[in-house]
Design a binder for these strands. Structure first.
Lengths: 352, 352
DNA sequence: TTCGCTTGCACAATCGATGGTGCAGAAACT
DNA sequence: AGTTTCTGCACCATCGATTGTGCAAGCGAA
């Protein structure tokens, strides 16, 4: 409180105080002073003054001058989901370790919103943009391209920029197989007892659905065509899909392949208010991992996408000189029921 | 692709193209042109050119000049948790509806990191900062105060700025009561069968622990002093607390009060690999709501903090002229086991 | 015709930091 | 002593937008 809301010190203030020119002060403060042959002692003086007056660089001014900001963007579909929030957490760690500032925003899976969001970020001269699960990656690409902004797709691929995605086909294959194998030989699963719920017409869903069909056919010999109930990425629409199914068949299938943890919440909504016993025989496979989801009262086999590897790969690619767009697959992992895995939070320190 | 990575158009470009001065262009583009008595037709011309050349304002330049940025910050402890991610989701909605840009960052519950993060955000001239669950809110306050930045505490109160927090005492009281009542009269809970796990020496934990003690005493007549096992906000430390307890007693308590969903993950880790039957008699109360957590194989009563109300209140307060710091309590809600509630995602539209 | 008011806009300073260029004085060399 | 080479730093344009101020042309009134 020694100073009333005093304006922040600038290099001009330090320039007057130190008797050096603003450019010298600037060079000292941003670390380029050796290149500029500033005397060690001058530098020390200025650094001392900066400390004393609590100087901090105005990053908007720097950003304007350099036409980049030190901000790195992550565009998510939504925050409120363990897959995407672990993405945010992991991303933050990477960005910070590079001395930059993470900016995480969501765009609600709305192509229009996605483009607007990218444009806003570009207006702040962000240095790089990581586009996660975009509904229209190529639309976002156009916007970035025009601004000369480095960007990369994650989770859902685009045709015009590098993409790092989970190996959805293999993940879904493993998951389908695991669901089927979960039933022993005494009472094996029949093809018409395994249904897939959730998903849209996006690349990930298509791959997963394809693997689902193929694996059912391979392991169960057949695959009735109505085995898939697309219901977007919304708990409520998924809920309605379950209700409709229940209406038609008088029961749920014995086994479910659920396309994402968001759709899985649709199942929770269906469960709410219905007797627990109704689900005692159920076996569920869920594409996406949620620690709590793994411990539901029936077996839930999950697929965990390797977020750490995806982000790491994405950072590698975004720094490289641009080449023709490629898609990189990252192997996901099959998670047995009742597994509580470590996550990005585990790298944080904590005081007991 | 009609233009190679052409630099973005500026008001100077449009100035040349339109024959008007940069200041006129600026006024037209930022909407202040009527105040400046610019002719309608001039405005239209400029707006047309802007459209044609895909002009977008350089927000760093604007920010520099105006010394604010249009950015609104949300500082979270961590992302990867349903409570905080729903906070982020809700916050985003509010910020966007005000035409500003949300910036969500996490500071790992580290006081040093919290201050650094605030300083970084300030360097970008953010307009407001919402500080969620900070370990050292008053430290962050100092930083904000010096910069004249409006800020507010959420979830954990500070002494030097307004705070909007959940009514932790009442929430914990309801929760403790609900846990106790969950046991019928045939086999009622004894005082030494209900333990609290998790929490730190922060305001929320203290309130919850106080309510826990008081309610136990009121309803069960006694409260042995060792009923609380603080274990920070870390799944692993909580896991170790459960293991230690199990070591000592050869079993878990019949009932648990778990201080947060993050601590609850410690319980999951304890469950992993142990037989499900070990937990069949368990009753858990968890402060924080997680939809999946609500459907675990034993009764889990949860407390949902009213994130929407908290954020709404915080936005109201942050706009008001400053007064002496006050703390506002927002009532949380008791959630019965097997409840799948709507969340911030439900307001998004989705295509099936 | 002249005064005064309105209309419609241009000018120029400013926000804070950066970095290319230039230049004086000291040191080194012939 | 004269010339070249370093040292060490100052100068100044620049990034793009904002905003207080000034002023000419147009118009109506006296």
């Amino acid at each position: 409180m020694d100073q009333r809301v005093k304006k922040k010190a600038t290099i001009y203030d330090l320039s007057l105080l130190s008797g050096s020119s603003p450019s010298t002060v600037s060079a000292v403060l941003n670390g380029t002073w050796r290149k500029r042959r500033i005397k060690e002692s001058t530098a020390q003086t200025i650094l001392g003054l900066a400390e004393l007056h609590q100087y901090t660089t105005n990053l908007q001014a720097r950003g304007l001058r350099r036409s980049r900001s030190g901000l790195v963007g992550l565009m998510l579909p939504v925050h409120d989901n363990r897959y995407f929030s672990s993405m945010a957490q992991t991303f933050e760690g990477h960005v910070r370790s590079r001395g930059q500032c993470p900016v995480v925003v969501s765009a609600s899976r709305d192509p229009e919103e996605e483009r607007r969001t990218a444009e806003t970020l570009i207006s702040y001269s962000i240095d790089q943009l990581f586009i996660v699960g975009a509904t229209d990656p190529d639309g976002v690409h156009e916007v970035c391209e025009l601004a000369g902004l480095r960007h990369i797709n994650i989770d859902l691929p685009g045709a015009k920029a590098h993409s790092v995605i989970s190996d959805n086909y293999e993940g879904a294959r493993m998951l389908t197989e695991a669901i089927i194998h979960h039933f022993g030989n005494d009472n094996p699963l029949r093809p018409d007892e395994l249904f897939l719920f959730g998903g849209r017409n996006d690349h990930a869903s298509r791959e997963r659905i394809a693997a689902f069909h193929a694996t059912k056919k391979a392991l169960l010999g057949a695959d009735p065509e109505d085995g898939v109930q697309s219901s977007g990425y919304s708990p409520d629409i998924t809920l309605r899909a379950f209700e409709a199914f229940y209406q038609r068949h008088g029961k749920l299938p014995r086994a479910l392949f659920i396309n994402s943890s968001i759709n899985m919440e649709g199942l929770l909504r269906f469960m709410a208010g219905r007797p627990a016993e109704m689900f005692s025989e159920l076996v569920v496979g869920c594409y996406d991992y949620d620690p709590f989801g793994s411990f539901l009262p029936f077996p839930v086999i999950m697929v965990r996408q390797n977020v750490e590897a995806m982000i790491t790969k994405a950072f590698e690619l975004i720094d490289e000189p641009p080449t023709a767009p490629q898609t990189f697959l990252i192997a996901p992992e099959l998670i047995q029921p009742r597994s509580a895995l470590k996550g990005p939070l585990d790298t944080l320190k904590d005081i007991a």
